[in-house]
Amino acid sequence: MKSNSSLSKLIPVMLCFFAMGFVDLVGIASNYVKADLGLTDSQANIFPSLVFFWFLIFSVPTGMLMSRIGQKKTVLLSLVVTFASLLLPVFGDSYMLMLLSFSLLGIGNALMQTSLNPLLSNIVRGDRLASSLTFGQFIKAIASFLAPYIAMWGATQAIPSFGMGWRVLFPIYMVIAVIAVLLLGQTQIAEEKEEGKPSTFGQCLALLGKPFILLSFIGIMCHVGIDVGTNTTAPKILMERLGMGLDDAAFATSLYFIFRTAGCFTGSFILRKMNAKSFFAISSFLMLIAMIGLFAFHSKTTIYICIALIGFGNSNIFSIVFSQALLYMPGKKNEVSGLMIMGLFGGTVFPLAMGLASDAVGQSGAVAVMTVGVLYLLYYTLKIKK
């Protein structure tokens, strides 16, 4: 009976992980907005940067909010904000409208990522947490790799997409957000009480004074920087080096998420058998090989292989870093969760730096920025407990 009860709670939580993946539509969407409005790389990269900017502002306050209203209510609030963000593009794709939509998408995702991961820890505990978080990332990745396909379908099939073109992606995901709200709203989840009084904003930030928490925070920044960077840059590499059109090059984003999805799925089983440190090292090394390949080779097949390696390698980084941080300070998981999700601000820093680098020297400059993140993750491997 207990396993059936846990499963009934896991299903709505995993649907929320699917909704969490909506944030990754920003990569392909920014490419379409760039084409529609004739923007430069630097201008187009403002969109993913803006989405992840809100993680810097809202993550720690969300950790404090969770301590007062609970994790489940915070997740529900995040889904409502996400619904609003997906509603706006139904009315058009002007620059200001898309800026507002992506801002709300970032705010909703900051609320969701901060609260959903610790909510899962009330259902799955101990050593199984990392593999369960990875499975959640697998569900999230399904939404991520479907987004380019839905956008491409909308862009090339004008009648079925009701004249919205690639923007048909938004109402489709909006309906799923509503279903997630309804299912989670009627699910009872007992939440663990935190030790002592809820922390203040200053006390939350003070946790960065603990070396391992700070290293994990930077690790999250690098993970999401590589993630958003590949999501956004992969089509541009094909367009620059092979002269492909956007609709064809958009497959590179789907390829990344296909292998990231496969990596999450297999990782949820591998992490039950292999220690986190070894698996993290293998994952980081695969990404390093891929970055070297993107510098050295220019054939379509090799570029696709490198993108696939980045997707597979980056698929389990977040789960391992996040679970390591939670297990390091289990009595302060709301605060630690807020800090780790604030690290998703790397999704702002990396695209901005990559946009400037690519405007200056081409897409190889963007690859160089991501390589810095990969090298840091290799260093972080040394700090992980087996």
Rank of each mutant, 00 (worst) to 15 (best):
S67W: 04
D93R: 13
F83S: 08
V80D: 09
A84N: 08
L65Q: 05
T74W: 12
V60P: 00
F55N: 02
F53C: 09
S78M: 06
G38V: 07
I69G: 01
Q71D: 11
G63C: 01
L77G: 05
S94N: 14
V81Y: 07
D93F: 14
V90D: 15
S78H: 06
M66N: 07
N45L: 13
L56F: 12
S85L: 11
L79W: 07
D93L: 15
P61G: 05
T82F: 08
L79Y: 09
T40C: 11
G63I: 00
M64S: 01
G70R: 07
G92H: 14
F52H: 12
D93Q: 15
T82R: 08
F58N: 00
N45M: 12
A84V: 12
V80A: 14
T82I: 14
S42A: 09
L39H: 10
S78L: 00
S78D: 01
S67D: 14
F53R: 03
Q71L: 12
P61E: 06
T62G: 01
Q43N: 13
L86R: 02
L77W: 07
Q71A: 10
V51A: 04
V81E: 08
P48M: 02
Q71I: 06
V80E: 07
W54V: 02
A44T: 01
T74R: 07
L86K: 09
S85E: 11
M64K: 08
L86F: 10
R68P: 05
P48A: 06
N45E: 11
S42M: 06
P48S: 05
P61T: 05
D41G: 02
G63T: 00
M66L: 04
S94R: 14
S94H: 13
P48V: 04
S85H: 13
M66T: 01
F52M: 09
L76A: 06
L77D: 11
T62F: 00
S78T: 05
G70V: 15
G38M: 03
L79G: 05
F55R: 02
V81M: 02
I46N: 05
Y95H: 13
L88V: 14
T40Y: 08
F47I: 09
V80N: 08
S78G: 10
F58M: 02
R68Q: 12
L87D: 03
L77E: 03
L79I: 09
L50H: 07
L86Y: 15
S94G: 12
V80Y: 12
Q71H: 11
L50I: 07
L37S: 07
